[in-house]
Design a protein around this nucleic acid. Structure first.
Lengths: 203, 203
DNA sequence: CTATATTTTGACCGACCGGTCTAATCTCTT
DNA sequence: AAGAGATTAGACCGGTCGGTCAAAATATAG
């Protein structure tokens, strides 16, 4: 029963989940810089070497937190967008699901964004400066289709997508500031501003 | 001729300027995490202890970089806004000066924002999560006046100001990604989006 | 020139980091 | 029960960090 044969043993899954959750909690409690392997181990109630045993390195652990959080967010949005057909509705579904998901998964996303903002790759670059076009592919296709059929005003699709993402991400920043923040007003105003900013009849 | 009597000796000003510039250069070259006192000293061509001699601590040095960059930005915007009278014109002056200043002081602002995003205070909180309402006081007053006279649509002033700031800050992120980035399109689209998003006749 | 204050340096310190290693323990299979 | 592999804990390592310190170098003043 070696590790190679069985992909995931019971204890392995349990420990990994436990450590991932402890990592999220530690990041939200202490911030990125103070989140050392020792602190995560203390939070999880295991030895520091247990973390390395299950994740190989701190880097891998942090990337696992990212995959967990953003993977769920992406899946959620994709299925929500697929339920409607017009670009206007798709954009609304995208924005509202994005914001609602943040609202409902505060700890995971706050920790994930803390990592994205603070973690550096070997060459010293933070992850948030390395986003590629693929990350906004769905949004870009919605915007592009909407501009073609006149639902949105004409503007460079790449810039429009970045603007929408930047606005939606404001909700995560708000949660980072205060995990219990009331997002009601912000969510509503962000959706309104995006719609208004893309409106073809404005001015 | 003690330091207490004379506020700023000649060599003191020169060394401080030299070290501040070396700090900016090192941050943009190596990123925040690798910017140690040793690296800054190497870049400046002085001993590590000379930095501590002139700035007291790394923390104070980094805060000095911030004051230098954001102080100049704030002054610039304030005088530009004061030149026009209508809220619509003031908002345009605010946005365009903000973006042009970024365009023309890329190194200083990229380094400053890198610090704001990555540096942690004693309690582990990053500076960008500690912005207070005062930072957007001017913008809020412009937006408030514009809503009162119907130049902008009605919406919560605090949220509107945060949204505008977030959009304008996209230009700094672009510069952080690439110090030589062409900001022409982004600047223009950001101004358009802000105007469009605040337009009272949209929908 | 001498003495006094300022500036500069490099060796050094304690703390903490991510990660390794070894030995002990636990959990199965037989 | 026994042996094998999986799991755990804790001591330990090399390296880097921010910062200190005492001495050396440099200027300034009388």
């Amino acid at each position: 029963m070696s590790k190679k044969e069985r992909e995931l043993t019971f204890t392995e899954v349990a420990r990994r989940t436990q450590i991932l959750q402890a990592t999220t909690a530690t990041i939200n409690k202490l911030g990125y810089e103070r989140t050392s392997l020792s602190e995560i181990a203390k939070e999880a109630g295991v030895a520091k070497s247990a973390i390395v045993y299950y994740f190989g390195s701190k880097e891998t652990l942090l990337m696992s937190v990212l995959e967990h959080a953003f993977g769920a967010l992406g899946t959620n949005i994709e299925s929500a967008v697929a339920l409607v057909s017009s670009p206007g509705d798709k954009l609304l579904a995208y924005a509202r699901n994005y914001l609602d998901f943040i609202d409902q998964h505060r700890a995971e996303l706050a920790a994930a964004v803390t990592i994205v903002v603070a973690h550096r790759t070997e060459d010293g670059k933070p992850l948030y400066l390395m986003e590629n076009e693929d990350d906004t592919a769905l949004l870009q296709s919605i915007l592009s289709a909407g501009m073609d059929e006149g639902a949105f005003r004409r503007m460079p699709v790449s810039e429009a997508a970045k603007i929408c993402e930047a606005l939606l991400d404001m909700a995560i920043t708000a949660v980072q500031r205060n995990l219990d923040a009331d997002l009601t007003i912000l969510k509503s105003e962000l959706v309104d501003f995006i719609v208004s900013g893309l409106s073809p009849v404005s001015q």
